[in-house]
Write a protein that binds this DNA or RNA. Sequence first.
DNA 1: TTGTAATCATACTATATCCATAGGTTTTAA
DNA 2: TTAAAACCTATGGATATAGTATGATTACAA
Lengths: 150, 150
Amino acid sequence: MGDMIMKISTKGRYSLRMLVDLAEHKDNGYIALKDIAERQGISKKYLEQIVTLLNRSDILRTNRGYQGGYMLAQAPSQYTVGQILRVTEGGIYPVTCLEDNPNQCERSGQCKTLAIWQGLSNVIAEYLDGITLQDILDNYQNVGADEYYI
Amino acid sequence: MGDMIMKISTKGRYSLRMLVDLAEHKDNGYIALKDIAERQGISKKYLEQIVTLLNRSDILRTNRGYQGGYMLAQAPSQYTVGQILRVTEGGIYPVTCLEDNPNQCERSGQCKTLAIWQGLSNVIAEYLDGITLQDILDNYQNVGADEYYI
DNA sequence: TTGTAATCATACTATATCCATAGGTTTTAA
DNA sequence: TTAAAACCTATGGATATAGTATGATTACAA
């Protein structure tokens, strides 16, 4: 019992919050992780691990040492939420069936439900790829049940 | 590393496959779990555990003993995928932030990213609530990137 | 009354992920 | 040269996932 479904982990959520924080302070030079951690109420040590994931892509520019820190490599409008989550979460597929791992499900050819998951994956990707960091800065309003369908 | 995001578990996926199987054989009286397990390639014992979740709602009609088994309580058009997943997965929220557990995030008032997750949750719910078992029987085609937006 | 099948109850094994904490090393700029 | 900060590696508890195994109990129908 209890609830246990399809969750985006702290890796993705904290990454996004960190990048939004960087976007908000993008004119202040390099921003130290310590400052972000304090503002966001996240352990600096944990954030350190998470930023490792981001560093595998060219999302950030970093500087070590005195007055070092992080800044966005590009303008906030150039980052989509989908892009960020793919990097930090390792993919945004809602079911394992859609991953391209070697032990693919052998029933995929006859599976009546696979198309449901493919459609769900598409819907999720379209939504997340349609939002940029700039949109969040501009006080993004969520998609309500009413407004969503035309 | 590796991929670790937001997955719908076997509980939800197998439940859906079981109900589709029942929908396909809805004119054959009660269907024994053994038959479903064989057709779907799922352990009968594991399916037994999963069907317990479905039995908490009025989704199924059951009969014990000789020629007993399960059948859908209503027509396939009356079941949405969203409804089924809510029962078996305990909710379809993509982040813990949206659950109504007591230890709600205290930053929700100022969180710049919460609206993103609310919007994502809405998009997922709209999609899953828009598909019925009958749609799956009618060879549901997935929502492609091109067709989705008008 | 006999077999069939659901129902219930555990318990156990692996494995993986989540969410950190901790300590040490390297680089940089004043 | 020194302090600040990124960077790296390891560890661990808690929880969830995905089953397997074993059996007891209950209800139904021929």
